[in-house]
Structure formats: C-alpha cells, structure tokens
Design a protein around this nucleic acid. Sequence first.
DNA 1: GAGATTTGACCTTC
DNA 2: GAAGGTCAAATCTC
Length: 261
Amino acid sequence: MEDTAATLAAELDRLLAMARELEARVDGDQGAPGAARELCAALAESVDRAMRLAGSSPRGGGGDGEGNAGTGRASVSGQVRGGRKAGANKVRTQVRVASVTDAGPLSDGLSWRKYGQKDILGATYPRAYFRCTHRHSQGCQATKQVQRAHADPLLFDVVYLGAHTCAQAAAILAGPELQPPAAFGREYQQSSPVAAPEGIQWPVEPVTPPPFPSSPASCYTPGSPWCQPAGSYGYAAGGADMEYDAEFVEMFLNLSEVQNL
DNA sequence: GAGATTTGACCTTC
DNA sequence: GAAGGTCAAATCTC
C-alpha cells in the first residue's frame, strides 16, 4: 500500500519540480504574460496540495509546510543501489540551481571535505564524494555524494549517508548563527557575497577533462570556468526555484531516524 | 605549515 | 569481473 503512495508521491514530486522550473523560466521571461506566470504558480501550488493529499508531505509539519517550494526536494529513498554500504542510512535529495554557472550548490552550512570522485557508469557527470570535515576530530560519520543529473544539468542528486554527530551540525540545528536562510540559501542568489564553504562548479557541457571541481576556496585552477569564486551559497537558485529549508537539514542531520531505507 | 582538492589505486560488493 | 566507494600521496592555496 505504501508503495503506491510512494510512487504517487514521487510522481507528484516530479510534477512539482517541473512546475517550478516552468515557473522560473516564465518568470525570467520578460515577455511572458502575467497570466502565464499565475498559471505556473497555480500549477505548482496545486501539485503541492496533491502531494499532501497523497500523504507525501515530506516537510510534514512545522514552518510553512511547504518549505520545499523549490525543486530542492528531499526524498527518502530506498537503497539507491544494492547497498554497497550496508547499514548506511541514505537520504536522497535533488537540488536544482538557477543556471549551470550557478552550480556552486549543495552547501548546506556544514563543512564537507571532498575525498573522492568517480565516473559512474551511464552517467554523464562524475560523482563526487564528500565527508564531514570533522570526521577525524569529532568522529562525525556523515558523508554525501553529489552528482549532476545527465538529463538536466541544473539538477543535482545529493545523497546523504550517515548522521552528523559533529558539534557544527548540532549548532546548526540549535543555534541562531546558521539559520536556514543563511545556511541554506533560500534568500541567496548567485551574487550573494557570502563565501561558500563548499562550492561545486560543473561544466556546462558534459566534458570529461576538468572533471569535478569542488571548492572555489582552494581551486587549483583559478580563473577557469571550473573554478569560480563562490557565486552562490547553499541551494540557492537565483530567481528560480531553488529553495531549501531547515526541515531537510534536520532530516539529514537525524538520519538515524530514517531507518526504513 | 596547515588544510583542502585531485586522482590513481585499492577494497568491497554484487 | 565490473562498478561503486574509499584511501592516500601529490599538489595547491591561503
């Protein structure tokens, strides 16, 4: 029974993402009639309502109950792949950015250190592997994998594994210093002056050479299109639909609670 | 010098 | 054996 609901939720989720994208595009088109914009907004709203009716409301409770507003959606998935990492909890989310140059995404207010990158069979873009910076100092086991969707360069698949146990994560959840807007960029746009602790720049084209740049803060090839100063912070989608909310953060920070994976 | 990224190699799982 | 995930040395930036 739950499978049906889950499938329905997944489909609605996609619909919402598409609606948001359409809305963003229409919004960016000066020539678009106001009616079109209203229609897009209504569409997104309608889909979202349907999602709730379907019982998928991933943000269940709290806040605006619709913090997902954008396509920065989080969906708890089952094992994405057979589970080479047995026992690891996974939370998968898709993050959309406003533009390919805005792809300095996926900064969630936490400190991640890139430890690997891999070309994935059938995937246009490589997958990057990150782990919590405090892994050694505090034993934080959180890791995440980031991969750009081949079908949609603006869409990033982010998979979080393991729970954050570091002090920084706790501070984010409890403290005022990294409130969602600041940490997760709902308000941040490409021109945000905030320096991203982590930024990933993907190429516009699925080229292979400079594979998977990661941090603009210490990029080896300054000036290259792969290494631009932190333009955006967090899951921001300048003017588009990339929004994010604290609830998702809470979710992945408490992965231990997501046992049914 | 410290800390972070890159990248090839190795390990694990299917 | 193939593919994904992680390690660690080399290299780079601050």
